[in-house]
């Protein structure tokens, strides 16, 4: 059996990879919740569509897998974003973003997306080539360099999102809408457009997560369930709608999930993390990292 130190190193690396993908998907969920005050249950399906999109790109783009990967990184999120924009226009706007109605409608969307994927993409899991293969060998184990690349990509994207939110006019508009919808509207901010775009961006973040993860895993029509649940966990532990909180929570959950399952059975680790969420919400509803928020 491996010594404890390399064991922990490996668990740490795995946790880091998980945390970075989780950061992207959870940020999407968190952004939507923060600005629009709605929970999107179909979020995991946007992630799945990203992965399926990456597979489709790999089929249609000839040449080196890296080329298809780059195309997928642009095309898949764009398509998913458009779909989300459409869903927002066709459904969510019409129920006026009623929080409970949104949950019910997005559950409906979840079923529709899943079933359409099953009918077109099929029931099998399909693999996508990584843009590059290189295994980093340590004295105890080997590790995929692509996984580390995922971490870098996620960090770059999150940093970009951060800058956009904090520095750009768009970010200001979003934050204004988040802070007070009516006042924002009075100041001439097209709140309805902001909502549609935020919903689309949230979906795109999930889709990017899907594209990044698919060379490590495979595309499968039921793959959206776990990321949805984990994103929930992260968003709640981080404080609903708080972006720094979400990032911190993604790292905490990603790392602890890796480490916990070293010492406990993985199912027990999952029980622990779901109960953690429940108890955080019950006893510290602003999240472990959030300031008191008007939820």
């Amino acid at each position: 059996m491996m010594d404890l130190a390399p064991y922990l190193l490996l668990a740490g690396l795995e946790g880091l990879v998980m945390a970075s993908v989780l950061m992207l998907t959870a940020l999407g969920l968190s952004l939507v919740f923060g600005v629009m005050r709605v929970v999107n249950v179909a979020h995991g399906e946007f992630y799945m569509l990203g992965a399926v999109g990456a597979w489709a790109c790999a089929q249609f783009v000839p040449g080196h897998p890296a080329l298809a990967f780059c195309v997928a990184l642009v095309v898949a999120p764009l398509l998913v974003g458009m779909l989300a924009y459409l869903a927002d226009w066709a459904i969510l706007k019409r129920i006026n973003y009623d929080p409970e109605g949104t949950i019910v409608s997005t559950i409906g969307m979840l079923y529709i997306i899943q079933q359409l994927t099953l009918m077109s993409f099929g029931p099998d899991a399909r693999a996508v080539d990584a843009p590059f293969y290189y295994t980093i060998r340590t004295p105890w184990f080997g590790y995929s360099s692509y996984k580390l690349f995922t971490v870098v990509m996620a960090l770059v994207l999150v940093a970009g999102l951060w800058v956009m939110l904090k520095r750009s006019k768009w970010g200001l508009v979003m934050r204004a809408t988040q802070f007070d919808r009516e006042t924002a509207q009075n100041f001439g901010i097209p709140v309805n457009r902001v909502y549609s775009i935020v919903f689309a961006i949230g979906a795109m973040l999930a889709a990017i997560g899907g594209v990044l993860v698919v060379p490590n895993q495979q595309a499968h029509y039921l793959m959206g369930g776990d990321p949805l649940l984990l994103s929930f966990v992260v968003v709640i532990v981080g404080g609903l709608g708080s972006i720094p909180g979400t990032i911190a929570a993604a790292i905490l959950i990603g790392m602890s999930d890796g480490l916990l399952s070293v010492f406990f059975s993985p199912t027990a680790a999952k029980i622990f993390s779901t109960l953690l969420v429940a108890f955080v919400l019950v006893f510290k509803p602003e999240g472990l990292f959030g300031r008191s928020n008007r939820v």
């Binding site: 059996m1 490996l10 668990a11 990879v17 184990f141 590790y143 895993q217 070293v262 993985p266």
Partner: peptide, 17 residues
């Protein structure tokens, strides 16, 4: 034992003696 919904396995590998 690996939970049926697991999608990544690297962290179980160190348990292989």
């Amino acid at each position: 034992a690996i939970p049926p919904t697991e999608t990544t396995f690297t962290r179980y590998m160190p348990r292989i003696p």
